[in-house]
Nucleic acid binder design. Structure first.
Lengths: 250, 250
DNA sequence: CATAATTGTTGATCTATATCAAGGTTGTTT
DNA sequence: AAACAACCTTGATATAGATCAACAATTATG
């Protein structure tokens, strides 16, 4: 196989609408491999609320979120549900080497995913160490996030859980960068109360009550149902129970 | 660099006391790489209760559990603790590319770890794709386990949590293979009530009460403080709340 | 052997969150 | 504009698990 020197400039144009370029696989790929990735890539769109795959169903692709938010959830026989993954743009879904999805994958908002057929993706992975290395890095990040989440589920109060979730979304929501002017953060909460309750291991009534409590105390302001304003991020952070300095991992 | 054809037979003798051979990195390594791993490998022993590293402390090695059990925990400022990882023999600890430990690593029982200095390990990883691939596979397994754990923390009752933990340990404890004669499983519970409570997000009193309840109902028998007998594994499984068929991931 | 330390059990009580129930907002359809 | 659906809020009450407290069993120590 002939190897071509990396041509970051040129391929970044070839696949500029693909978030994989930034976070998943293409970062330092070589151009010829990248071409293969381009060939097995396709896009799928979902409306808010739609299911991408059900747990146990065949899933013959891996994918990266382009826009919108996807969730991974597990359901018990009697209907109790727990969200176990929250995928924001550039996050990766699907496990190389597994035929079926272990989780329900759902579009929390309108969603566009960039999909790669699994078989060819795996073959390219074998030939392109960087892809595997990048995927390892991303998986380790996700594992750290899952562990932070376990602390939240196991030990935090309802109030701390809500404050934590708002901070997590505020930190990750790219759109907020724009309005972070005078220390005030403004962004759309992309989850329903029910989705929040599934994330936090609470009921939706408890979520609603704690949101109201934070609102009454001025820790957050709400405009409409979903728009959130955090007047003083550090003050909200104090309600999360987390170390003030500890780097967030989500 | 000259490449040598894999010599599985010969190197499996070279490092036969190293669990990494089986699960972490050596599986399909080539002999010359393996020699390097041998050179940077060393063993460390800890007594039950000892701390391996504190969260935030420098950790300049990655390691694999040889014998015993190690735990990863997070602590909040006010002392609330949540276990976020349970490492049994052959499990891997430490993150390539990170200087400090994100968690308290503790010996739950007497413990022997096989350590690799991080810098050289990372260099070998770069040159030996199989090591990275194996590590990715293990990390994905851990992520699945973490997500199963999140369901437990967020949605299961105390009784279900206890039953789940006993089943998880029963399944993974190698020693039980020996006594699985007439459908009855016998093994040592390697965790104190307090460690169990940190795993499950409960208090130790609740753990003790639920253990007593399961004992009174004949779902488990106890001999001494730690030895557990499960007379009917399937019956205990029904108490976990999990799908009867769903493959366990831990 | 007696004493202390560690670990586990059980009881009484409290409380955070779940559950059950009603009503309020917002946005959409006709 | 009325009717409806989806989503959210708030109140009353119940309850699982936490907390506080005492004691029992086991192991270690002088």
């Amino acid at each position: 196989m002939t190897r071509v020197t990396p041509k970051i400039q040129s391929f970044s144009q070839e696949c500029k609408d693909c978030p994989i370029r930034h976070r998943a696989v293409c970062a330092r790929c070589e151009a010829d491999e990248l071409t293969h990735l381009e060939q097995i890539k396709y896009y799928r769109s979902f409306e808010a609320g739609q299911t991408v795959v059900w747990a146990g169903d065949r899933m013959d692709f891996v994918a990266s979120v382009v826009t919108g938010i996807a969730t991974l959830s597990q359901t018990m026989e009697d209907g109790r549900r727990q969200m176990v993954g929250l995928l924001l743009p550039s996050d990766f879904a699907g496990r190389p080497g597994r035929e079926t999805s272990a989780y329900d994958v759902t579009a929390a908002t309108d969603l566009v995913m960039c999909c790669f057929r699994k078989k060819p993706f795996e073959e390219i992975m074998l030939r392109t160490p960087h892809i595997g290395q990048r995927l390892l890095e991303m998986t380790l990040d996700e594992l750290d996030a899952a562990r932070e989440w376990m602390l939240l589920l196991g030990r935090k109060t309802a109030r701390e859980k809500i404050a934590s979730l708002i901070c997590i979304i505020a930190r990750r929501d790219a759109s907020l960068q724009l309005s972070a002017s005078d220390g005030e953060l403004r962004f759309d909460l992309p989850l329903t109360r029910e989705a929040m309750s599934e994330y936090l291991g609470l009921t939706l009534e408890t979520v609603s009550r704690q949101m109201s409590a934070l609102r009454k105390e001025g820790l957050i302001l709400t405009e409409g149902k979903r728009q959130i304003v955090i007047p003083d991020f550090d003050r909200l952070l104090e309600e999360t129970g987390d170390d003030s300095d500890g780097g967030f991992l989500v």
